[in-house]
């Protein structure tokens, strides 16, 4: 075959063990892949088990009474209605603050900000806000809203604290959604004589709505499940009557779960799991909703 003309060469043929070693290596490799698969699937199995236990143990507690009545007998019976309502209030007001602020921030970053020191600073702030521990948000909310601004322990103080906590999530997802809007759409609008703001309002934001919505829903889920930020800003240990103003305290599901699982002796286990199930159902439902919106939006865009 005229191989001899090549300089030196064919080093692998000099090694008689190579064939055997290769076969061994391939077998070992299959084992590694299999092991990694096992690892990944056991993580999934664990997650499934966690959700399974909560549903299995919590379902018997769920009844109309549980969902619509206040706790009774030192919370050892009755329902969790005030905690559900409190959490819904908190999530609602949180979004009312975080939505405009987050989407506004995203619009600024994508449509107006020029690369430079200020933009870098904003991005740095967002990255770090996302990493600030939730209990530090709680401290901050206590210091600024409850005490300094004199809002007291109230829905308003708690919602503002939660809004700041989810701000990075909302900004980041909204920014991603806005960036995905093709530039040609913006240019088409500008070429028709629209101002920059009109282009944002009439073209960019509508196209980015599903993506923004995903971020909002994820933010709601996060706000619904957080405990530490509401500990000192709004959450009430036991408050059977519903709030009448945004300056009232409320019970909240995550804090209630904390209370019934650690602070009440002889608490029926079933009611603890029931509370966990309602909270997990709310949070998981919101996350699945976000995933569904995102999947639909992706499919629509691909066409």
């Amino acid at each position: 075959m005229g191989r001899g003309r090549r300089p030196a060469g064919t080093y692998w043929r000099l090694d008689p063990d190579l064939v055997a070693r290769r076969a061994r290596r391939l077998r070992v490799e299959r084992l590694y892949s299999w092991g990694l698969g096992l690892l990944a699937w056991s993580v999934v199995g664990l997650i499934a088990a966690i959700l399974g236990v909560i549903v299995w143990q919590g379902a018997p507690a769920i009844s109309l009474e549980f969902l619509t009545q206040p706790p009774r007998e030192g919370m050892r019976s009755g329902g969790i209605y005030p905690a559900i309502v409190g959490t819904l209030y908190l999530v609602g007001f949180t979004i009312a603050v975080a939505l405009p602020l987050g989407v506004g921030g995203a619009v600024y970053l994508t449509e107006y900000a020029r690369p430079g020191r200020l933009t870098r600073l904003i991005r740095l702030a967002i990255v770090n806000l996302a990493g600030v521990p939730s209990v530090v948000y709680g401290l901050f909310g206590l210091g600024l809203f409850v005490i300094f601004l004199g809002l007291g322990t109230s829905i308003l103080a708690g919602s503002l604290t939660l809004a700041l906590l989810i701000l990075p999530v909302v900004i980041t997802t909204a920014e991603e959604a806005i960036r995905a809007v093709p530039r040609s759409l913006r240019e088409a609008s500008l070429a028709l004589g629209a101002t920059r703001w009109q282009t944002v309002r009439e073209v960019v934001l509508p196209s980015a709505t599903p993506g923004i919505l995903t971020g909002i829903i994820l933010g709601m889920a996060r706000a619904a499940g957080e405990t530490a930020p509401i500990l000192f800003t709004v959450a009430a240990f036991f408050l059977p009557r519903l709030p009448v103003s945004i300056f009232d305290q409320v019970m909240a599901l995550p804090y209630h779960l904390f209370v019934v699982s650690t602070q009440i002796p002889n608490m029926p286990v079933e009611l603890q799991y029931g509370t966990a199930l309602v909270l997990v159902g709310l949070v998981t439902g919101l996350n699945l909703l976000a995933a569904a919106v995102r999947a639909r939006y992706r499919r629509a865009r691909r066409v």
Binding site: V43, V44, I47, A48, I50, L51, V53, I54, A221, R222, A224, G225, E226, T227, P254, Y255, L257, F258, S261, Q272, A276, L279, V280, V283, T284, L286, N287, A291
Partner: peptide
């Protein structure tokens, strides 16, 4: 599945 784990409130993990 991983996203669902990320979404589980920490108080729930603590409870379990």
């Amino acid at each position: 599945a991983v996203e669902l784990l990320a979404a589980l409130p920490s108080v729930v993990i603590g409870f379990l």
